[in-house]
Amino acid sequence: EEEEKKKEEIARLLGVSKEDVERILKKNNLDIEQLLRRVQREN
């Protein structure tokens, strides 16, 4: 699934687990696209 791939990509870029990414998304109330763009910009 596309969303899972995005979570895995974010996890890889941040050096965290996919579960961490899911927690970040919930905690910050971000959607996956916003987080992915933010992470890609910083790297």
Rank of each mutant, 00 (worst) to 15 (best):
L30W: 12
E22M: 05
G15Q: 05
K5A: 13
A11T: 03
Q40H: 08
D31I: 04
E33V: 02
D20F: 11
E1W: 13
G15L: 02
V16K: 05
I24H: 04
E1R: 12
I10F: 03
E1N: 12
R41L: 14
K6T: 08
N43E: 12
I32K: 01
K26C: 12
L30V: 08
E8I: 12
K5Q: 12
V16Y: 03
I10Q: 00
E4S: 08
Q34V: 08
E19A: 12
L36S: 02
D20I: 13
L35I: 04
L14W: 02
K26Q: 13
E19H: 08
E33S: 04
E22A: 05
D20C: 07
R38W: 15
R12T: 07
L25E: 00
E9N: 06
E42S: 10
R12G: 07
E3M: 15
S17V: 04
L25V: 06
V39C: 08
L25P: 00
K18R: 09
I24Y: 11
K7G: 01
L30Y: 08
I32A: 13
V21W: 01
V21K: 00
K7M: 11
V39D: 02
N29L: 07
K5V: 09
E42N: 12
E4I: 08
I32F: 04
K18N: 06
D31F: 04
N29Y: 06
E1T: 13
V21T: 01
Q40L: 10
L14I: 07
Q40D: 05
G15W: 01
I32G: 03
E8K: 11
V16M: 08
R12K: 12
E4F: 06
R37E: 15
K5W: 13
K18C: 09
L30M: 13
E1D: 13
I10H: 00
D20N: 05
E9V: 12
A11C: 08
L30S: 04
V39I: 14
Q34Y: 04
K26A: 13
N28Y: 15
R37C: 10
K26Y: 06
R12I: 09
K6V: 11
K27A: 14
L30I: 13
A11W: 00
E3Y: 15
I32Y: 06
D31K: 06
A11L: 02
A11N: 00
Q34M: 07
V21Y: 01
E8V: 11
V21N: 00
K26W: 04
S17P: 06
A11R: 04
K7W: 07
L35R: 00
R41P: 06
D20P: 00
E42F: 04
E22W: 01
D31C: 06
L35P: 00
E1S: 13
R23P: 02
K18V: 15
L13S: 04
E2A: 11
I10N: 00
S17W: 02
E9P: 00
L14S: 01
E3Q: 13
S17G: 07
E33M: 02
K6W: 10
D31V: 04
R38S: 14
Q40F: 02
